[in-house]
C-alpha cells in the first residue's frame, strides 16, 4: 500500500515537472483539422503563453459547449457566419477591440462587412470553406454535375458525407431546387425523402476527416469541405473536385471573443499572430481552406468570384431547428 502511494506521488511530481511555466494562457476552441499543431507550438514558444486547445465539429456543438460551460471557460472561438449572428443576438460574444490588432489590414476586404455582422463589430474573418462534390475518376466515369447524380443505385455504400445537419439537409433542399435555408414543412419533407433515397449510398457521415475515406479508397464519392477535397486530391491524383450546379454552402469562419473571457489580451495576441502573413500561409498550406489574408490568397480571383457569386451562407432559422433535428434523427 505504501509503495502504491509512493508511486503515485512520484507520478504526480513527474507530471508537475513536465509542465513548463508560462506567463499566461488562452483557452481556444476551434474546428478540428483547422490549425496545425506546429503553429500553436510556435505561438507558445514565441509569446510564452500556453494555448489550451479544444475542438468541435459543428457550430451547434460549439454553441452547446459555450452555453453549458460556466462563463470564462473559453476565450477565443471560431464560429461561422450564422452562428456569429446568433451569438450576437444572445449576447455571447464581445465587441472586438481592433486597436489591439496590428495585422488587421492583412484581411481581404472581400470577406469583411458580411450580412451576419455588417460592421465587423464582433467578428473578423479567419478562413472560408465551401462544400464540394469529390469523385474518384479512376472508378467512376459518369458525368457528375449535380447532387442528384449521386442517387444512382450503383453508388451503394460509396459516398462519404459531412456529419453536419444544416449542410446535409441544405444540400438535399438545393438538390430539389429549394433554398438551403428553407423552413417550409412540405419542402423539408421532400428534402427528407430525397435524403432517405441517398442514404443507401452513404457509407459514413464524418466531418472531422472525410478525406481519409477517399485516400484509403473506402469510397469513390463524397460531399465534403473544399480543403479536405484538396488534400485528398494531393494524395490521390484521380480525384476530381466539382462545384455542384444546384448550389453549395459557403461557411465563413470568424474570430470571436467570448463574453467574460478571462484571457482577453492573450486572445488578441493569438488573433494578431494568426493574422500574420507567414502564419496564415502555414495554416492554409496544411489545411487549404480559402485564405482571407490578401497577401496569402490561395484561390484564383476568378474562382473566388465564382464562389462568392454562387455559394449560399447557412442562415439562422430560429426555432425551426427542431424540424431539422427530427429529420436528422430519422435519417440516421
Amino acid at each position: 500500500m505504501k509503495k502504491i502511494v509512493l508511486l503515485i506521488t512520484i507520478l504526480l511530481i513527474l507530471s508537475g515537472c513536465s509542465a513548463k511555466s508560462y506567463d499566461g494562457e488562452v483557452n481556444v476552441l476551434n474546428w478540428t483539422s483547422y490549425i496545425p499543431q506546429e503553429v500553436i507550438r510556435d505561438f507558445e514558444n514565441e509569446y510564452n503563453i500556453k494555448v489550451n486547445y479544444g475542438t468541435y465539429s459543428s457550430n451547434e456543438e460549439l454553441l452547446a459547449k459555450i452555453s453549458s460551460s460556466s462563463s470564462g471557460t473559453y476565450d477565443l472561438i471560431f464560429p461561422s457566419d450564422y452562428m456569429i449572428e446568433l451569438m450576437i443576438e444572445r449576447d455571447m460574444i464581445e465587441p472586438l477591440d481592433k486597436t489591439k490588432l496590428n495585422n488587421i489590414d492583412n484581411i481581404n476586404s472581400l470577406f469583411l462587412k458580411q450580412k451576419f455582422d455588417k460592421t465587423n463589430k464582433y467578428s473578423l474573418p479567419f478562413l472560408a470553406a465551401t462544400t464540394t462534390i469529390v469523385v474518384n475518376r479512376k472508378n467512376i466515369k459518369d458525368p457528375i454535375t449535380s447532387y442528384n447524380d449521386l442517387l444512382k443505385e450503383e453508388y451503394k455504400n460509396n459516398i462519404i458525407i459531412l456529419d453536419d445537419q444544416r449542410i446535409v439537409i441544405g444540400m438535399a433542399l438545393q438538390a430539389n431546387g429549394y433554398s438551403m435555408n428553407e423552413t417550409d414543412k412540405d419542402k423539408l419533407d421532400n428534402a427528407k425523402k430525397w435524403l432517405l433515397k441517398l442514404n443507401k449510398n452513404i457509407k459514413a457521415f464524418d466531418s472531422d476527416s472525410p478525406k481519409t475515406f477517399l485516400i484509403t479508397n473506402e469510397v469513390d464519392l463524397g460531399v465534403i469541405w473544399n480543403a479536405e477535397a484538396i488534400i485528398a486530391k494531393e494524395e490521390n491524383e484521380s480525384i476530381e473536385i466539382i462545384y455542384p450546379k444546384d448550389g453549395f454552402a459557403l461557411s465563413l469562419d470568424n474570430y470571436a471573443i467570448v463574453k467574460k473571457a478571462k484571457n482577453k489580451d492573450n486572445a488578441y495576441k493569438f488573433i494578431d499572430y494568426l493574422l500574420r502573413d507567414d502564419v496564415s500561409k502555414k495554416i492554409t498550406e496544411e489545411y487549404p481552406y480559402i485564405n482571407t489574408n490578401k497577401n496569402c490568397q490561395n484561390v484564383s480571383t476568378d474562382e473566388l468570384k465564382y464562389i462568392l457569386d454562387n455559394a449560399t451562407y447557412v442562415e439562422n432559422i430560429g426555432s425551426n431547428i427542431s424540424t431539422y433535428d427530427k429529420i436528422w434523427a430519422e435519417i440516421k
Binding site: E61, K65, S68, K203, A204, F205, D206, A329, K332
Partner: peptide, 17 residues
Amino acid sequence: GGKTMIIGNLIKNQFLT
C-alpha cells in the same frame, strides 16, 4: 461511421449538439 444512431448518440447529441 456516424450512420447508425443508438440511444447513447441521441442523448449525447441532446447535451452536446
